[in-house]
């Protein structure tokens, strides 16, 4: 079993390396057009957004509607670090993400001590408050936002951060802390009775999700070089939520597939003008009607499935483990 896991990890590492060097080579040889590159970066940022929101909504079962607000904090803090204070990119990204994580704790603590949908309302308001604050802070440009942020998000950084996000969240979910979060999603009272500190784990998951949303924001700011309060509206939060629901609540691979698919569909529909959003919405409705649990449900697409190795049906189901 251990040898097999090692082999599987090796295969994944090789696949990732091939993906990384393949795309880096294609970029260097100009085989990948600039337009495809822009969408590649959007894909990476969307994957981080969807996977981190899935940890909160899909795995811990807490509906949060303020992911764009966290993204905004990460984007603004990191942009201030590089543009105004002249700090290096890596430090800016880390400070931006950490600041977002801290804000996540502060925002999450009061509503997460309660049961029910209070978090949804609190985060909804939080997202708007952040936007309102940013409009009124002249230091970061007010309504006009910050322009001319250095373009420091390279393919290497994007790749490293995207893979790291997915790996860290996957390992968190597979740890005992992650199991506690899943237990809270399944039945909060039962989890409480089992001795799980529900508030602690809810806030933990929430602030980890916020941290990575801040990371996505920092990468966004340093690729699209222009950030404005109006970029981070409630619609941006819904975009991330749509990806999570579309891919399956409680499936990391589902979120990744959904983030990639939605980015591609979005780009493909650019030429349709006003019809674009209608078709986009129609696609989502079709999926939700025929696949209410999302593309992947709570299942994960793993190497075991692909190689049909030992482990029953092959699809890895977190819900089964909890039962």
């Amino acid at each position: 079993m251990k040898a097999m896991r090692l082999r599987n990890n090796l295969i994944i590492a090789v696949c990732l390396a091939v993906l990384y060097f393949g795309i880096a080579y294609a970029m260097k040889q100009r085989m990948l057009s600039s337009f495809h590159q822009v969408n590649l970066y959007l894909m990476g940022i969307n994957i981080i957004m969807a996977v981190s929101l899935n940890l909160i909504v899909g795995f811990t079962g807490q509906l949060a509607l303020g992911h764009a607000g966290f993204m905004a904090i990460g984007a603004y803090v990191s942009a201030v670090m590089t543009l105004k204070l002249g700090q290096p990119f890596l430090l800016a990204v880390l400070v931006g993400s950490l600041a977002t994580g801290v804000v996540g704790v502060l925002i999450g603590l009061p509503p997460l001590r309660l049961r029910g949908d209070y978090l949804a309302i609190a985060t909804l308001g939080f997202g708007e408050i952040i936007r309102g604050l940013l409009i009124n802070i002249n230091y970061v440009g007010g309504a006009a936002g910050m322009n001319g942020i250095p373009k420091l998000t390279t393919w290497t950084w994007l790749f490293i951060f995207t893979v790291a996000t997915v790996l860290l969240i996957k390992n968190f979910i597979n740890s005992s802390h992650g199991r506690a979060c899943i237990a809270i999603r399944e039945n909060e009272i039962a989890a409480d009775a089992m001795g799980i500190n529900t508030t602690f784990y809810k806030v933990l998951a929430f602030s980890i999700g916020a941290f990575f949303a801040g990371l996505a924001g920092a990468l966004y700011a340093h690729y699209f070089f222009l950030i404005q309060p109006q970029t981070f509206t409630i619609l941006k939060s819904f975009d991330a939520l749509v990806m999570v629901v579309f891919g399956g609540l409680g499936s990391l691979t589902g979120s990744i597939i959904a983030a990639v698919a939605i980015t591609v569909v979005n780009a493909a529909l650019q030429s349709l003008g006003a019809l674009r959003m209608v078709i986009y919405a129609l696609l989502l409705v079709v999926v939700m009607v025929f696949r209410p649990q999302g593309l992947m449900g709570t299942k994960e697409f793993t190497l075991r499935t692909l190689l049909r190795q030992k482990g029953g049906s092959g699809l890895h189901d977190y819900r089964k483990q909890v039962d």
Binding site: F35, F224, N266, L269, Q270, G273, M277
Partner: peptide
């Protein structure tokens, strides 16, 4: 092409028009 009234999308569309 449509840019959805979003900055990132406007950049994406401009890249497609100008570079591609």
């Amino acid at each position: 092409l449509d840019n959805k009234s979003e900055n990132a999308e406007a950049l994406s569309v401009a890249t497609r028009l100008i570079a591609d």
